[in-house]
Design a protein around this nucleic acid. Sequence first.
DNA 1: CTAGTGATTCCCT
DNA 2: GGGAATCACTAGC
Length: 216
Amino acid sequence: MIATPDRTPLPRNFFDRPVLEVAPDLLGRLLVRTTPDGPITLRLTEVEAYDGPNDPGSHAYRGRTPRNDVMFGPPGHVYVYFTYGMWHCMNLVCGPDGQASAVLLRAGEIVEGAELARKRRLSARNDKELAKGPARLATALGVDRALDGTDACASGETPLYVLAGTPVPSDQVRNGPRTGVAGDGGNGDAHPWRYWIANDPTVSPYRAHVPRRRRS
DNA sequence: CTAGTGATTCCCT
DNA sequence: GGGAATCACTAGC
């Protein structure tokens, strides 16, 4: 018997914890994007942790800038960045005000509003691909820098918020190295930054980081 | 399935 | 100036 997902918002103190504690706890939670045409709801299936000042792979590693400013603010807010000239990716800020850690939302399953997500993701061959990858996830939900700094703990009062949903039992959580991150030191290092739901078809495939060659 | 590469623009050095 | 927390597409196995 499947429990009905909990539609109460996650409280701010949920995010005011160490990022490696928050990240696996976000799996199975519901992200709601309200749009003029109706809500799009996504169940989180894959996330990745960035540990602020201690983490060479984090955007916050080299200090506060206009781009990463929201990461240094209070927990429970959305940090959106623009990358590769074309894409946006979204994070949820964790830890106390000033700490600058965050969880990148890498993939999810669209559980409501799939017809709206499909219009934004015309290249998706099936619904499993709608949010399979961090930029795809942001595209499917219509998230860009205009939503940078949104409070995700204020249900109904913001265009983007997180509900308790159904947390995933720890025996269904898998973890491993981050994907595609420069300065992550290759392999043997540190923490299991990336977390996903075992055998979930919406989880993005692993890709090792490849340094780009210069254009001729 | 895997591996390689072009697209395209912002931001920090 | 040049790298970037990616994607879509192609070729080849």
